[in-house]
Design a protein around this nucleic acid. Structure first.
Length: 448
RNA sequence: GCCGGGGUAGGGUAGUUGGCCAUCCUUUGGGACUGUGGAUCCCAUGACCCGGGUUCGAAUCCCGGCUCCGGCCCCA
């Protein structure tokens, strides 16, 4: 009996790790070039951090435990909350704006399926301290470039919650979670029925959801004006003050509970229009899409998602938006824009042709082992390629065989003759050609 | 939590009307070959997901569990 990996976790073999490292490195370089600085937070946090952000029912989907001191802790299920916790704890007085990026493993207790694991990696960035369109456009453009830099064709959708929330104020509070869910699920038929049932099918909601692209903004502005007129004869607090009614799921309960402390969402379409205009200047292609809802209430307006094909049911590779979370976590409120990228999903569709550099093997005749160790030491110091030495007690022939099977490009042969002459034999494995060179000449020839 | 399809050496597989030491390829270690690799040959290591049941006898049939793959729910 062997011990298996826990469900939903993965092992990464050398080739996997190399690919992941190469892709991550490319993304980090880009983030740094945009002025974002890397941070790290703990793998586990107080459970409360996540229940404050996402509601108590989140506990069912995360790994929680009590430590020996009786503290309720949780393996982080995402990184935005920890990053904002760090901000509140130690960076509130840092000069704004703050540009941060991060990469880390996260844990969720869910049924594994394609693109979904119990341990997964998230790469993301947060721009903290600005509520201006400039900040939002920068972050969205950055997300788009990151995905593109990995060679992934992403489909960027940008949404704005302001208008939809204004419409929601015209809908009885008890019905809002259900309506939002239908929007999110893109259940247009059911949504139409629901709105008719409530006598709210004149609000323009359905038309709004179908709007796409350039003209969407003009039409959205008209809808907003119509809405202002309608709202005069439909008291918005009609139902908001009333009882909430039975919610069907815990998630819905959380959602309606959280709406009490919803971030104020002013209906500010010119703001959103500027974000879209700036993105055009950044050269990032995206689709205006008012269907993007991203359930949580701490989002203040602009939200976005990036999808990719070839991933099966879990096709979202990036999600983000502008939010206010510092206040919830006990700090002074500030506005941030950020996103998270599902690194594992990127890895499933990315094409990486980079491979590790071929190693150089120092092969030797046993009686001059000491000299071989010295040669290897010198070469490791001078070259960036891996340099390996036999540790199996093999003879010269088997060592060459081994060098061949690990894909060595060159072999440096060290024997009594070479030691005598202070010239070692450099053998190119592909051709079998050999030449006698000093250690300096070898280092130089191999790119030292 | 739900639905469907799978689990035989490290990887890929044969074998299911129950029946002799579970097949082959590859990988790994050793040898032929203690100063020159890739070929070839020989030897060795290594598996029926776990637990019950039926049976004289189970990789094979039955039940339960675990797990992988795809989907649903959920998706911060």
């Amino acid at each position: 009996m062997t011990i298996e990996r826990p469900r939903g976790t993965r092992d990464f073999l050398p080739a996997d790790s190399f690919r992941r490292g190469a892709v991550r490195k490319g993304m980090v370089e880009l983030l740094e070039r945009w002025g974002y600085q890397e941070i790290s937070t703990p793998t586990f946090e107080h459970l409360e951090l996540f229940t404050i952000k996402s509601g108590p029912s989140i506990t069912e989907e995360i790994y929680t435990f009590k430590d020996k001191g009786g503290r309720d802790l949780a393996l982080r299920p995402e990184l935005t909350a920890p990053v904002m916790r760090m901000y509140v704890n130690e960076l509130q007085k840092a000069p704004k704006p703050l540009r941060l990026h991060y990469f880390g493993n996260c844990f969720r207790y869910e049924r594994p399926q394609r693109g979904r694991f119990r341990e997964f990696w998230q790469l993301g960035a947060e721009l903290i301290g600005s509520d201006r369109p400039d900040a939002e456009a920068e972050v969205i453009a950055l997300a788009g470039e990151l995905v593109g830099s990995a060679g992934v064709a992403g489909d960027l959708h940008i949404g704005y919650l302001g208008l939809i929330r204004s419409i929601m104020r015209m809908i009885p509070a008890a019905e809002r979670p259900a309506v939002m869910k239908l929007i999110d699920k893109k259940e247009r038929g059911l949504l139409a029925e629901k709105l008719q049932e409530m006598g709210r099918d004149h609000l323009g909601l359905q038309e709004l959801l179908d709007l796409r692209g350039r003209r969407a903004l003009d039409r959205a502005e008209e809808l907003a004006e119509d809405l202002a007129e309608i709202s005069e004869d439909l008291p918005p607090d009609e139902a908001a003050a009333g009882s909430r009614g039975p919610s069907t799921t815990d998630a819905a309960k959380d959602r309606s509970a959280r709406s009490d402390r919803a971030a104020p969402t002013a209906l500010n379409l010119p703001h959103f229009r500027e974000v879209v205009d700036l993105l055009g200047i950044y050269g990032v292609e995206g689709t205006v899409d008012f269907q993007i809802v991203r359930g949580l209430e701490y989002y203040t307006g602009t939200v976005f998602e990036i999808y990719a094909s070839g991933l099966g049911a879990q096709n979202q590779i990036c999600g983000g938006g502008t939010y206010q979370l510092a206040g919830l976590l006990g700090g002074q409120e500030t506005t941030s824009t950020g996103f998270g990228i599902g690194f594992d999903r990127i890895m499933e569709i990315v094409a990486v042709d980079e491979t590790p550099p071929p190693p150089i093997a120092v092969v030797f005749v046993p009686q001059v082992k000491g000299e071989a160790v010295r040669v290897a030491k010198t070469l490791r110091h001078r070259l960036s390629a891996p340099v390996v030495l036999d540790v199996m007690g093999r003879g010269l022939g088997p060592q060459l065989k081994q060098a061949s099977s690990i894909g060595a490009g060159y072999v440096v042969i060290v024997g009594p003759r070479e030691v005598e002459l202070e010239k070692f034999t450099l053998r190119e494995m592909a051709t079998g050609s050999q030449e006698a060179l000093s250690i300096d000449e070898i280092a130089e020839k191999l790119g030292g």
